[in-house]
């Protein structure tokens, strides 16, 4: 993947497929690191399934339900000296999955984040019926979007209505203009 935002788009699609009703994408930056967390309340995975999405070539899977998405994210993180962790529960009481990827931004093999706004709008366009929470924090400030707040104002108007999609894009662009740069 040329941009980490493409990995995020890819991984968050798994949350949609897992039947999540809320997906949170959290980006947290320090001077040296970028942490990407994708947390959902979808159906979750068993420990064996978590193992298999991490390393699909070592499984005995017979279906094509597991792909290269997580390994590509893992590769992108590990080539900067970082790592990927997956915590998941398939228990009825607290089902869901949290994927956490740590990147060292100053490493020569760090992939730039790229067009994260397009990733957020593509995700909402693809699954307008569920809720999305996006938070990008950096230097004590943050860009935040929570579709639950939008829905409270929009009522019956769906999130993928074009005017709404444009508002979301513009809102995020304004948020990024106000976000302090990180060295």
């Amino acid at each position: 993947m040329k941009e980490l935002s493409l990995n995020i788009l890819d991984i968050a699609q798994n949350s949609v497929k897992a039947g999540a009703t809320l997906v949170e994408i959290q980006l947290t930056e320090t001077a040296e690191t970028l942490t990407i967390r994708i947390v959902d309340n979808g159906c979750g995975m068993t420990a064996a399934q978590v193992e298999s999405v991490m390393d699909p070539f070592f499984t005995t899977r017979t279906t094509r339900s597991v792909g290269l998405g997580v390994p590509l994210l893992k590769l992108a993180a590990e080539q900067t000296g970082g790592s990927v962790e997956i915590a998941s529960s398939a228990e009825a009481a607290d089902h869901g999955t949290a994927v956490t990827a740590l990147f060292y931004k100053n490493h020569i093999d760090f992939t730039p984040l790229g067009d994260i706004i397009s990733t957020v709008t593509a995700l909402i366009q693809g699954a307008p019926g569920i809720d999305w929470r996006f938070v990008h924090s950096r230097g004590g400030d943050a860009v935040t979007l929570d579709t639950r707040e939008l829905r409270a104002v929009l009522g019956d108007v769906p999130l993928d209505q074009y005017d709404v999609m444009q508002w979301i894009g513009d809102y995020l662009r304004e948020g990024y203009e106000a976000l302090p740069a990180c060295e």
């Binding site: 929009l154 019956d156 108007v157 993928d160 209505q161 005017d163 508002w167």
Partner: peptide, 23 residues
């Protein structure tokens, strides 16, 4: 600045229209 008030205006505008749904 983008505000939630603009979303309320979109809602108002859409009220009289048939909202297009997937399919």
């Amino acid at each position: 600045m983008k505000s939630l008030a603009e979303l309320a205006a979109i809602r108002e505008k859409m009220k009289d229209k048939v909202i297009l749904r997937e399919g």
